[in-house]
């Protein structure tokens, strides 16, 4: 099974947003939108699910807090208790700073690793005509479900939405 992917380039955020609406009205399914900067309000339009990064962050933080607190307690009070300056072996208040720092560290690492895990490709091939996405172009990627939308309607849509460049290709669906 294969599907046809349509790509349209725009020169501004407004035109892009208009095009997204136009596509949806025209029955096209908007797969992705690429832009030089984040555009608010697109998530719902494009249908991006709520990110689970905050959960990763929380898990990392809780792990860090637990790990650091336990490890400090274990090394100072259980594994080798040593009298240091007359302080008790389990000097919990003194363990707070390190516990806090490790909490932050693991939360941050979890967030970043989570982000990298979900978004990055080391050998990304950016199509030659999309190079300007990181500069000043806005790209809309849509898929035409079967043949509901005619080629002509599509062409009209691109003209109506002031696309500066369009292309289409067939993607094999796995």
């Amino acid at each position: 099974m294969s599907r046809r992917i349509h790509v349209a380039h725009y020169t501004s955020e407004q035109r892009l947003l208009g095009a997204v609406k136009g596509c949806r009205d025209a029955g096209l399914h908007v797969l992705d939108v690429r832009s030089p900067y984040p555009i608010h309000g697109l998530d719902e339009l494009v249908g991006i699910p709520r990110s689970r990064l905050p959960i990763a962050c929380l898990v990392g933080g809780v792990t860090g807090l637990g790990l650091a607190t336990w490890f400090q307690y274990w090394t100072s009070a259980t594994d080798w208790p040593i009298d240091v300056g007359g302080k008790p072996f389990d000097s919990l208040p003194a363990f707070a700073p390190v516990a806090f720092e490790v909490t932050i560290l693991l939360a941050g690492l979890a967030t970043v690793f989570g982000l990298l895990f979900r978004t990055t490709r080391l050998r990304a091939e950016i199509p030659e005509d999309e190079l300007r996405v990181t500069d000043d172009r806005f790209v809309l990627v849509a898929v035409r479900p079967d043949a509901d939308v005619s080629d002509a309607a599509l062409a009209r849509l691109w003209i109506a939405t002031e696309a500066v460049h369009t292309s289409e290709y067939v993607e094999d669906e796995r």
């Binding site: 989570g114 990298l116 895990f117 490709r121």
Partner: peptide, 10 residues
Amino acid sequence: MSWTAPLAFA
């Protein structure tokens, strides 16, 4: 698919 993070973890 991303494999940076798994690499780093590993």
